[in-house]
Computed example of a mutant assay.
Amino acid sequence: MLPDHAIHLAEKNAIHARRPAGGNPGPQGPAPGRARPLLRAALVTLSLLAAATGAAWLVQRQVDVARAARWPAPGQLVVAGAQRLHVHCMGAGGPTMVLEAGMGGWSQDWSLVQARLATQGRVCSYDRAGYGWSDDGPATCDGMAMVQQLRQALAAAHVDGPYLLAGHSMGGLLVGLYARSYPREVAGLAFVDAVGRDYAAQFASPAYRDFRAGLGRLLAMADTLAPLGIPQALGQPASLVAARLPAAVRGSAIDFSQRPRQYAALRAENAGFDAMLAQARRAGPLPHVPTVVLSSSVMRDFPPGLDSDAMRVAWQLNQDSIAREAGVRRVIFSDTGHFLHVERPDAVVAALAAWRRQVRVVNGRM
């Protein structure tokens, strides 16, 4: 609350500002007797809003610190460039399968399939910068920088290649970029309802531009309000699947999905998305390695805006483009939305296990 002498000074300055040069009184506003209660009410309202905002920030900060401390990392933190990344490996036997989550996702997205795949060989998931147990990331993400960080993290975790790279959604774009840039480090590729480098070309230009702009505004708002706990209170976590994960990881996944840093990471990845597409288009072709393309059939659990008939057609064309470049027929999961590995883990495990066996045959490593 401002003291009375500050209010008197504000009133005096406001009255003086209304007088024109030369000292002649100009049009009169509210009389001083009326202006004072209005000004006092405005200042009180602003003070209360500032106090409420600060209190909300402090409460959310305390909640966030508690969430971070509640759950120990299941894997290891390794140095990768300017950040430490969390790498979680299970099983033994090569080639190692590396799981790349989609935009807004992290290692726990794969919890319904990773342990089961690890019964037949080593499988590693990880958290990109800003997610899960990894350090905070940059304000805007760069696709090639993310590829380099993954390479550094795998080396620091003593995970030898060549790798079986499996990526979901934007993660498919990243593993494709990895394979195009470092083909000798890749033994096989799996695209799980992935984004292809020709993704934007499948949309009508105005529709794509409007969709991307709308998503950008939504994520910017969520990132701005998350430190105050507003998206969390409205039931809008940064993850679409945390509440549907196995009981063993569900509590930590829900907690992480409501941390403000995850909203910031999601916004940063979306901000760099079109530049990632451009990097992939400039890169070389996919290597000739055993490849599988697994696709959804229902527009469910997609980003807001991908829900019209035109968008459905564009997504299927995107999947066709990936399969055509890889020279394979895509496998379409009936009545399944975007998160195949959450909705249909049995089928995904079977498909990826068969893919790994194919790689071993090709490389003479049965």
Rank of each mutant, 00 (worst) to 15 (best):
P303C: 00
P206F: 01
H8L: 15
P27H: 13
I254W: 08
Q114K: 10
V63R: 15
R180W: 07
M146N: 13
R267T: 01
Y263V: 03
L286S: 02
Q60S: 10
V249Q: 04
A201P: 06
D198Y: 08
L266N: 13
V342H: 02
A21H: 12
G284K: 00
Q262R: 09
L245E: 01
G132S: 06
N270F: 13
S252C: 14
G167I: 03
V292M: 05
M103L: 15
D142P: 00
F333C: 06
L38D: 10
L219G: 00
R84V: 11
T119Y: 10
R197Q: 11
V241E: 09
A145L: 10
L174Q: 12
S239A: 08
I15K: 15
Q60I: 08
L174T: 09
A66M: 11
R244W: 09
A242Y: 05
T45H: 06
Q60K: 08
V79F: 09
S134P: 08
E269I: 03
L58M: 15
A17R: 13
Q60Y: 03
A187V: 07
V342E: 03
A73W: 00
Y163P: 03
G26Q: 09
V342S: 08
Q148D: 15
R250T: 07
I322D: 01
L177I: 05
G364F: 09
D4K: 07
P138V: 05
D320A: 12
V78S: 02
A55P: 03
R84W: 11
L2Q: 13
G121Q: 06
R281H: 03
D223L: 00
Y163K: 02
T96Q: 04
D309Y: 09
F333H: 04
S107Y: 08
F273W: 03
Q258I: 09
H338V: 07
L117Y: 06
V361T: 14
L49Q: 13
V342G: 08
P303I: 02
I230Y: 05
T45Q: 10
G167K: 00
N363G: 14
I7V: 15
V123Y: 05
L174F: 08
T140L: 12
Q62A: 15
E343S: 12
W71K: 01
S47H: 10
A115L: 07
L165G: 05
H338D: 00
Q62R: 13
G172P: 06
D274P: 03
P27N: 14
A253M: 03
G75I: 07
R356Q: 10
G251W: 02
D335Y: 04
H86D: 07
L9Y: 10
L49Y: 09
I7Q: 10
